[in-house]
Amino acid sequence: MKIGPDDIRTVARLARLNLTPEEEASMVTTLDAILTYMETLNALDTTDIEPTAHIIDLETPWRADEVTNEANTEALLANAPARDGNHFRVPKIID
Protein backbone atom coordinates (compact mmCIF):
# COMPACT_ATOMS: atom_id res chain seq x y z
CA MET A 1 0.00 0.00 0.00
CA LYS A 2 1.30 3.47 -0.93
CA ILE A 3 -1.16 5.31 1.26
CA GLY A 4 -2.97 4.61 4.53
CA PRO A 5 -5.99 5.93 6.43
CA ASP A 6 -3.83 8.51 8.26
CA ASP A 7 -2.68 10.05 4.99
CA ILE A 8 -6.24 10.21 3.74
CA ARG A 9 -7.35 11.98 6.91
CA THR A 10 -4.50 14.50 6.62
CA VAL A 11 -5.27 15.28 2.99
CA ALA A 12 -9.00 15.50 3.75
CA ARG A 13 -8.34 17.93 6.59
CA LEU A 14 -6.14 20.13 4.38
CA ALA A 15 -8.93 20.17 1.79
CA ARG A 16 -11.57 20.80 4.47
CA LEU A 17 -13.43 17.60 3.59
CA ASN A 18 -15.43 15.58 6.09
CA LEU A 19 -15.26 11.94 5.05
CA THR A 20 -17.33 9.15 6.52
CA PRO A 21 -15.40 6.01 7.54
CA GLU A 22 -16.75 4.29 4.41
CA GLU A 23 -15.55 7.14 2.20
CA GLU A 24 -12.16 7.06 3.90
CA ALA A 25 -11.82 3.36 3.15
CA SER A 26 -12.77 3.79 -0.48
CA MET A 27 -10.37 6.74 -0.83
CA VAL A 28 -7.52 4.57 0.42
CA THR A 29 -8.18 2.06 -2.35
CA THR A 30 -8.72 4.67 -5.08
CA LEU A 31 -5.74 6.89 -4.26
CA ASP A 32 -3.54 3.87 -3.79
CA ALA A 33 -4.36 2.78 -7.33
CA ILE A 34 -3.45 6.25 -8.63
CA LEU A 35 -0.15 6.29 -6.76
CA THR A 36 0.66 2.81 -8.00
CA TYR A 37 0.12 4.08 -11.53
CA MET A 38 2.62 6.90 -10.79
CA GLU A 39 5.14 4.18 -10.01
CA THR A 40 4.83 3.12 -13.63
CA LEU A 41 5.70 6.66 -14.73
CA ASN A 42 8.59 6.79 -12.28
CA ALA A 43 10.16 3.84 -14.04
CA LEU A 44 11.01 6.13 -16.96
CA ASP A 45 14.54 7.53 -16.90
CA THR A 46 14.22 11.35 -16.90
CA THR A 47 17.81 12.16 -15.93
CA ASP A 48 18.47 14.50 -18.85
CA ILE A 49 14.99 15.91 -19.22
CA GLU A 50 14.12 19.35 -17.88
CA PRO A 51 11.13 19.30 -15.51
CA THR A 52 7.94 20.33 -17.24
CA ALA A 53 6.47 23.52 -15.81
CA HIS A 54 3.67 23.77 -18.32
CA ILE A 55 2.40 21.52 -21.05
CA ILE A 56 1.80 24.27 -23.58
CA ASP A 57 4.86 25.91 -25.07
CA LEU A 58 3.90 29.58 -24.93
CA GLU A 59 5.74 32.88 -24.83
CA THR A 60 4.75 34.81 -21.70
CA PRO A 61 1.41 36.42 -22.49
CA TRP A 62 1.06 39.69 -20.63
CA ARG A 63 -0.86 42.92 -20.58
CA ALA A 64 0.08 46.57 -20.11
CA ASP A 65 -0.23 48.02 -16.62
CA GLU A 66 -3.55 49.78 -17.14
CA VAL A 67 -6.66 50.00 -15.01
CA THR A 68 -9.44 48.69 -17.23
CA ASN A 69 -12.00 47.63 -14.64
CA GLU A 70 -14.56 49.93 -13.12
CA ALA A 71 -16.19 49.34 -9.76
CA ASN A 72 -18.98 46.83 -10.15
CA THR A 73 -19.35 46.18 -6.47
CA GLU A 74 -23.11 45.58 -6.36
CA ALA A 75 -23.06 42.89 -9.02
CA LEU A 76 -20.06 41.17 -7.45
CA LEU A 77 -21.48 41.25 -3.94
CA ALA A 78 -24.71 39.78 -5.28
CA ASN A 79 -22.88 36.44 -5.48
CA ALA A 80 -22.03 36.46 -1.79
CA PRO A 81 -24.01 34.29 0.63
CA ALA A 82 -23.81 37.12 3.17
CA ARG A 83 -22.76 40.75 3.12
CA ASP A 84 -22.47 43.68 5.45
CA GLY A 85 -22.55 46.98 3.64
CA ASN A 86 -19.95 46.56 0.91
CA HIS A 87 -18.05 43.86 2.77
CA PHE A 88 -18.35 40.13 2.34
CA ARG A 89 -19.43 38.56 5.61
CA VAL A 90 -17.97 35.20 6.64
CA PRO A 91 -18.11 33.06 9.79
CA LYS A 92 -15.85 34.46 12.49
CA ILE A 93 -12.22 33.51 12.05
CA ILE A 94 -10.15 32.71 15.10
CA ASP A 95 -6.45 32.44 14.51
Binding site: A82, F88, R89, V90
Partner: peptide
Protein backbone atom coordinates in the same frame (compact mmCIF):
# COMPACT_ATOMS: atom_id res chain seq x y z
CA UNK B 1 -19.55 41.74 14.79
CA UNK B 2 -19.82 39.04 17.38
CA UNK B 3 -20.14 35.98 15.22
CA UNK B 4 -18.78 37.02 11.85
CA UNK B 5 -15.78 38.58 10.15
CA UNK B 6 -15.85 40.98 7.21
CA UNK B 7 -13.68 40.72 4.13
CA UNK B 8 -12.46 43.45 1.80
Amino acid sequence: HGDSSLVD
